[in-house]
Design a protein around this nucleic acid. Structure first.
Lengths: 125, 125
DNA sequence: CCACTGTTTCGATGACGGTCTATCCAGAGG
DNA sequence: CCTCTGGATAGACCGTCATCGAAACAGTGG
Protein backbone atom coordinates (compact mmCIF):
# COMPACT_ATOMS: atom_id res chain seq x y z
CA UNK A 1 0.00 0.00 0.00
CA UNK A 2 2.18 2.72 -1.23
CA UNK A 3 3.29 3.40 -4.74
CA UNK A 4 0.13 3.09 -6.71
CA UNK A 5 1.55 3.83 -10.08
CA UNK A 6 5.33 3.68 -10.09
CA UNK A 7 6.98 4.78 -13.28
CA UNK A 8 10.27 3.13 -12.46
CA UNK A 9 13.05 5.18 -14.02
CA UNK A 10 12.81 7.76 -16.72
CA UNK A 11 15.60 6.13 -18.67
CA UNK A 12 17.88 9.16 -18.87
CA UNK A 13 20.22 7.64 -21.43
CA UNK A 14 21.88 9.75 -24.04
CA UNK A 15 22.45 6.91 -26.40
CA UNK A 16 25.42 6.58 -28.65
CA UNK A 17 24.18 4.75 -31.67
CA UNK A 18 25.38 1.38 -32.79
CA UNK A 19 28.41 3.05 -34.30
CA UNK A 20 30.54 2.59 -31.25
CA UNK A 21 30.89 -0.35 -28.89
CA UNK A 22 28.28 -0.48 -26.17
CA UNK A 23 29.52 -0.44 -22.62
CA UNK A 24 28.68 -3.42 -20.51
CA UNK A 25 26.38 -1.55 -18.15
CA UNK A 26 24.60 0.25 -20.95
CA UNK A 27 23.98 -2.99 -22.76
CA UNK A 28 22.30 -4.33 -19.64
CA UNK A 29 20.06 -1.28 -19.35
CA UNK A 30 19.08 -1.38 -22.99
CA UNK A 31 18.46 -5.10 -22.87
CA UNK A 32 16.07 -4.55 -19.98
CA UNK A 33 13.95 -2.15 -21.98
CA UNK A 34 14.12 -4.27 -25.10
CA UNK A 35 13.15 -7.36 -23.15
CA UNK A 36 10.11 -5.48 -21.93
CA UNK A 37 8.80 -4.95 -25.43
CA UNK A 38 10.11 -8.22 -26.86
CA UNK A 39 6.87 -10.06 -26.21
CA UNK A 40 3.91 -10.53 -28.52
CA UNK A 41 1.35 -9.57 -25.90
CA UNK A 42 3.24 -6.50 -24.73
CA UNK A 43 3.88 -5.45 -28.31
CA UNK A 44 0.18 -5.60 -29.03
CA UNK A 45 -0.63 -3.81 -25.79
CA UNK A 46 1.77 -1.09 -26.79
CA UNK A 47 0.25 -0.73 -30.22
CA UNK A 48 -3.26 -0.76 -28.83
CA UNK A 49 -2.42 2.00 -26.40
CA UNK A 50 -0.44 4.04 -28.89
CA UNK A 51 -3.05 3.80 -31.61
CA UNK A 52 -6.01 4.43 -29.35
CA UNK A 53 -7.90 7.66 -29.54
CA UNK A 54 -6.30 10.29 -27.34
CA UNK A 55 -3.14 8.24 -27.11
CA UNK A 56 -4.36 6.43 -24.06
CA UNK A 57 -6.44 3.40 -23.26
CA UNK A 58 -8.22 1.95 -20.25
CA UNK A 59 -7.15 -1.45 -19.04
CA UNK A 60 -10.64 -2.80 -19.48
CA UNK A 61 -10.41 -2.11 -23.21
CA UNK A 62 -7.06 -3.81 -23.45
CA UNK A 63 -8.12 -6.91 -21.60
CA UNK A 64 -10.89 -7.58 -24.07
CA UNK A 65 -8.43 -7.85 -26.95
CA UNK A 66 -6.76 -10.93 -25.55
CA UNK A 67 -7.63 -14.42 -24.41
CA UNK A 68 -5.69 -13.80 -21.24
CA UNK A 69 -6.88 -13.30 -17.72
CA UNK A 70 -7.00 -9.90 -16.09
CA UNK A 71 -4.06 -10.51 -13.79
CA UNK A 72 -1.91 -11.58 -16.73
CA UNK A 73 -2.67 -8.38 -18.65
CA UNK A 74 -1.97 -6.44 -15.51
CA UNK A 75 1.37 -8.18 -15.21
CA UNK A 76 2.38 -7.25 -18.75
CA UNK A 77 1.34 -3.66 -18.17
CA UNK A 78 3.50 -3.60 -15.09
CA UNK A 79 6.49 -4.83 -17.04
CA UNK A 80 5.98 -2.12 -19.63
CA UNK A 81 5.46 0.47 -16.91
CA UNK A 82 8.59 -0.49 -15.01
CA UNK A 83 10.55 -0.36 -18.25
CA UNK A 84 9.40 3.21 -18.68
CA UNK A 85 7.66 2.73 -22.00
CA UNK A 86 4.17 3.42 -20.70
CA UNK A 87 2.68 5.41 -17.86
CA UNK A 88 -0.59 4.86 -16.04
CA UNK A 89 -2.96 7.35 -14.50
CA UNK A 90 -5.97 6.57 -12.40
CA UNK A 91 -9.17 8.46 -13.10
CA UNK A 92 -12.01 7.27 -10.96
CA UNK A 93 -12.49 3.57 -11.24
CA UNK A 94 -10.34 3.13 -14.29
CA UNK A 95 -6.68 3.41 -15.01
CA UNK A 96 -5.58 4.85 -18.30
CA UNK A 97 -2.26 4.03 -19.88
CA UNK A 98 -0.34 6.03 -22.45
CA UNK A 99 2.98 5.43 -24.14
CA UNK A 100 6.08 7.40 -23.26
CA UNK A 101 7.49 8.44 -26.62
CA UNK A 102 10.91 9.27 -25.20
CA UNK A 103 11.68 5.69 -24.33
CA UNK A 104 10.67 4.39 -27.73
CA UNK A 105 12.50 7.19 -29.50
CA UNK A 106 15.65 6.25 -27.70
CA UNK A 107 15.49 2.66 -28.81
CA UNK A 108 14.63 3.77 -32.30
CA UNK A 109 17.69 5.97 -32.41
CA UNK A 110 19.86 3.19 -31.11
CA UNK A 111 18.79 0.86 -33.86
CA UNK A 112 19.20 3.38 -36.61
CA UNK A 113 21.04 1.28 -39.10
CA UNK A 114 24.66 2.23 -39.72
CA UNK A 115 23.85 2.32 -43.43
CA UNK A 116 27.32 2.44 -44.96
CA UNK A 117 29.17 4.91 -42.78
CA UNK A 118 32.22 2.89 -41.98
CA UNK A 119 34.25 4.02 -44.94
CA UNK A 120 34.92 0.38 -45.71
CA UNK A 121 38.14 1.31 -47.41
CA UNK A 122 40.78 -1.33 -47.79
CA UNK A 123 40.92 -3.00 -44.45
CA UNK A 124 43.16 -5.83 -45.30
CA UNK A 125 44.39 -5.18 -48.81
CA UNK B 1 27.62 -14.66 -53.89
CA UNK B 2 29.27 -16.58 -51.16
CA UNK B 3 26.49 -16.98 -48.69
CA UNK B 4 27.82 -19.97 -46.91
CA UNK B 5 25.85 -19.43 -43.79
CA UNK B 6 22.08 -19.37 -43.63
CA UNK B 7 20.50 -16.01 -43.09
CA UNK B 8 17.16 -17.31 -41.94
CA UNK B 9 14.51 -15.00 -43.37
CA UNK B 10 14.97 -11.54 -44.73
CA UNK B 11 12.06 -10.23 -42.70
CA UNK B 12 10.09 -8.73 -45.58
CA UNK B 13 7.76 -6.74 -43.40
CA UNK B 14 6.42 -3.44 -44.55
CA UNK B 15 5.81 -2.24 -41.05
CA UNK B 16 2.95 -0.07 -40.09
CA UNK B 17 4.25 1.97 -37.23
CA UNK B 18 2.87 1.88 -33.75
CA UNK B 19 0.06 4.06 -34.91
CA UNK B 20 -2.25 1.20 -35.66
CA UNK B 21 -2.94 -2.01 -33.77
CA UNK B 22 -0.50 -4.81 -34.45
CA UNK B 23 -1.93 -8.04 -35.78
CA UNK B 24 -1.40 -11.10 -33.68
CA UNK B 25 0.91 -12.82 -36.15
CA UNK B 26 2.92 -9.69 -36.78
CA UNK B 27 3.43 -9.18 -33.08
CA UNK B 28 4.86 -12.67 -32.82
CA UNK B 29 7.27 -12.04 -35.69
CA UNK B 30 8.42 -8.73 -34.29
CA UNK B 31 8.79 -10.17 -30.82
CA UNK B 32 11.08 -12.83 -32.25
CA UNK B 33 13.44 -10.28 -33.71
CA UNK B 34 13.27 -8.06 -30.64
CA UNK B 35 13.96 -11.01 -28.38
CA UNK B 36 17.05 -11.71 -30.43
CA UNK B 37 18.56 -8.33 -29.63
CA UNK B 38 17.10 -8.04 -26.14
CA UNK B 39 20.18 -9.47 -24.47
CA UNK B 40 23.22 -7.66 -23.11
CA UNK B 41 25.69 -9.97 -24.79
CA UNK B 42 23.98 -9.88 -28.17
CA UNK B 43 23.59 -6.13 -27.95
CA UNK B 44 27.30 -5.78 -27.38
CA UNK B 45 28.07 -8.27 -30.13
CA UNK B 46 25.93 -6.22 -32.45
CA UNK B 47 27.64 -2.99 -31.52
CA UNK B 48 31.07 -4.57 -31.79
CA UNK B 49 30.32 -5.84 -35.26
CA UNK B 50 28.62 -2.66 -36.42
CA UNK B 51 31.34 -0.38 -35.11
CA UNK B 52 34.21 -2.48 -36.33
CA UNK B 53 36.32 -1.31 -39.22
CA UNK B 54 34.80 -2.36 -42.51
CA UNK B 55 31.50 -3.10 -40.83
CA UNK B 56 32.45 -6.66 -40.12
CA UNK B 57 34.27 -8.57 -37.45
CA UNK B 58 35.80 -11.99 -37.09
CA UNK B 59 34.43 -14.27 -34.42
CA UNK B 60 37.81 -14.56 -32.79
CA UNK B 61 37.81 -10.82 -32.14
CA UNK B 62 34.34 -10.94 -30.64
CA UNK B 63 35.07 -13.83 -28.33
CA UNK B 64 37.91 -11.95 -26.69
CA UNK B 65 35.61 -9.15 -25.60
CA UNK B 66 33.64 -11.36 -23.22
CA UNK B 67 34.22 -13.64 -20.30
CA UNK B 68 32.17 -16.28 -22.07
CA UNK B 69 33.21 -19.49 -23.71
CA UNK B 70 33.42 -19.91 -27.47
CA UNK B 71 30.28 -22.02 -27.77
CA UNK B 72 28.29 -19.44 -25.87
CA UNK B 73 29.38 -16.67 -28.21
CA UNK B 74 28.65 -18.97 -31.12
CA UNK B 75 25.18 -19.53 -29.74
CA UNK B 76 24.47 -15.82 -29.47
CA UNK B 77 25.73 -15.24 -32.98
CA UNK B 78 23.42 -17.96 -34.20
CA UNK B 79 20.45 -16.31 -32.53
CA UNK B 80 21.31 -13.00 -34.16
CA UNK B 81 21.87 -14.72 -37.49
CA UNK B 82 18.58 -16.58 -37.40
CA UNK B 83 16.80 -13.37 -36.53
CA UNK B 84 18.24 -11.84 -39.66
CA UNK B 85 20.11 -9.01 -37.96
CA UNK B 86 23.57 -10.25 -38.88
CA UNK B 87 25.06 -12.35 -41.64
CA UNK B 88 28.19 -14.44 -41.61
CA UNK B 89 30.64 -15.22 -44.38
CA UNK B 90 33.52 -17.62 -44.28
CA UNK B 91 36.82 -16.44 -45.71
CA UNK B 92 39.45 -19.06 -45.33
CA UNK B 93 39.85 -20.05 -41.74
CA UNK B 94 37.83 -17.26 -40.25
CA UNK B 95 34.18 -16.32 -40.34
CA UNK B 96 33.27 -12.66 -40.58
CA UNK B 97 29.97 -11.26 -39.42
CA UNK B 98 28.34 -8.04 -40.51
CA UNK B 99 25.07 -6.42 -39.53
CA UNK B 100 22.08 -6.35 -41.84
CA UNK B 101 20.93 -2.72 -41.69
CA UNK B 102 17.52 -3.52 -43.16
CA UNK B 103 16.44 -5.52 -40.15
CA UNK B 104 17.52 -2.87 -37.69
CA UNK B 105 16.00 -0.11 -39.78
CA UNK B 106 12.70 -1.89 -39.69
CA UNK B 107 12.65 -2.12 -35.93
CA UNK B 108 13.76 1.48 -35.69
CA UNK B 109 10.87 2.55 -37.87
CA UNK B 110 8.44 0.53 -35.83
CA UNK B 111 9.52 2.18 -32.63
CA UNK B 112 9.48 5.66 -34.05
CA UNK B 113 7.68 7.36 -31.27
CA UNK B 114 4.27 8.78 -32.08
CA UNK B 115 5.73 12.08 -30.95
CA UNK B 116 2.66 14.15 -30.12
CA UNK B 117 0.34 13.38 -32.97
CA UNK B 118 -2.58 12.49 -30.81
CA UNK B 119 -3.54 15.97 -29.80
CA UNK B 120 -2.24 15.19 -26.32
CA UNK B 121 -4.08 18.10 -24.88
CA UNK B 122 -4.60 18.11 -21.17
CA UNK B 123 -5.22 14.53 -20.29
CA UNK B 124 -4.48 14.81 -16.67
CA UNK B 125 -1.72 17.32 -16.15
C1' DC C 1 -21.97 1.73 6.01
C1' DC C 2 -22.05 -2.20 2.38
C1' DA C 3 -22.03 -4.18 -2.27
C1' DC C 4 -19.95 -3.99 -6.78
C1' DT C 5 -16.44 -3.33 -10.39
C1' DG C 6 -11.98 -3.21 -11.69
C1' DT C 7 -6.91 -3.78 -10.64
C1' DT C 8 -3.01 -5.59 -8.28
C1' DT C 9 -0.52 -9.04 -5.59
C1' DC C 10 0.81 -13.83 -4.26
C1' DG C 11 2.13 -18.56 -5.01
C1' DA C 12 2.61 -22.36 -8.09
C1' DT C 13 3.72 -24.47 -12.46
C1' DG C 14 5.44 -25.33 -16.94
C1' DA C 15 8.16 -23.52 -20.72
C1' DC C 16 11.94 -20.86 -22.38
C1' DG C 17 16.72 -19.25 -22.50
C1' DG C 18 21.77 -18.56 -21.22
C1' DT C 19 25.72 -20.99 -19.98
C1' DC C 20 28.72 -24.72 -19.60
C1' DT C 21 31.52 -29.14 -21.09
C1' DA C 22 32.46 -32.37 -24.52
C1' DT C 23 32.40 -33.35 -29.17
C1' DC C 24 32.29 -32.73 -34.11
C1' DC C 25 33.18 -30.26 -38.72
C1' DA C 26 35.93 -27.42 -42.07
C1' DG C 27 40.27 -25.29 -43.95
C1' DA C 28 45.29 -24.56 -43.64
C1' DG C 29 49.67 -26.45 -43.60
C1' DG C 30 52.98 -30.05 -42.91
C1' DC D 1 47.90 -38.60 -45.40
C1' DC D 2 47.71 -36.33 -40.55
C1' DT D 3 47.51 -32.48 -37.32
C1' DC D 4 46.35 -27.97 -35.74
C1' DT D 5 43.17 -24.25 -35.15
C1' DG D 6 38.71 -21.62 -35.61
C1' DG D 7 34.12 -22.24 -35.19
C1' DA D 8 29.61 -24.81 -34.76
C1' DT D 9 26.77 -28.42 -32.61
C1' DA D 10 24.72 -31.46 -28.90
C1' DG D 11 23.18 -32.24 -24.49
C1' DA D 12 22.62 -30.93 -19.63
C1' DC D 13 22.03 -27.71 -15.77
C1' DC D 14 19.67 -24.00 -13.79
C1' DG D 15 17.71 -19.53 -13.45
C1' DT D 16 14.14 -16.57 -15.45
C1' DC D 17 9.58 -15.69 -17.30
C1' DA D 18 4.63 -16.21 -18.89
C1' DT D 19 0.53 -17.83 -17.26
C1' DC D 20 -2.94 -19.19 -14.18
C1' DG D 21 -6.20 -19.29 -9.89
C1' DA D 22 -7.22 -17.29 -5.58
C1' DA D 23 -7.26 -13.55 -2.76
C1' DA D 24 -6.37 -8.77 -1.32
C1' DC D 25 -6.90 -3.84 -2.49
C1' DA D 26 -8.95 0.73 -4.35
C1' DG D 27 -12.89 3.73 -5.91
C1' DT D 28 -17.85 4.22 -7.09
C1' DG D 29 -22.46 4.29 -6.03
C1' DG D 30 -26.45 3.05 -3.25
Amino acid sequence: MSKQLPVADAAPYCPPLLREPLSEVRSVELARVLKAIADPVRLRLLSLIASHAGGEACVCELTGAFDLTGPTISHHLKVLREAGVIAGERRGTWIYYRVRPEALAELSALLLAPAEPATAEAVGA
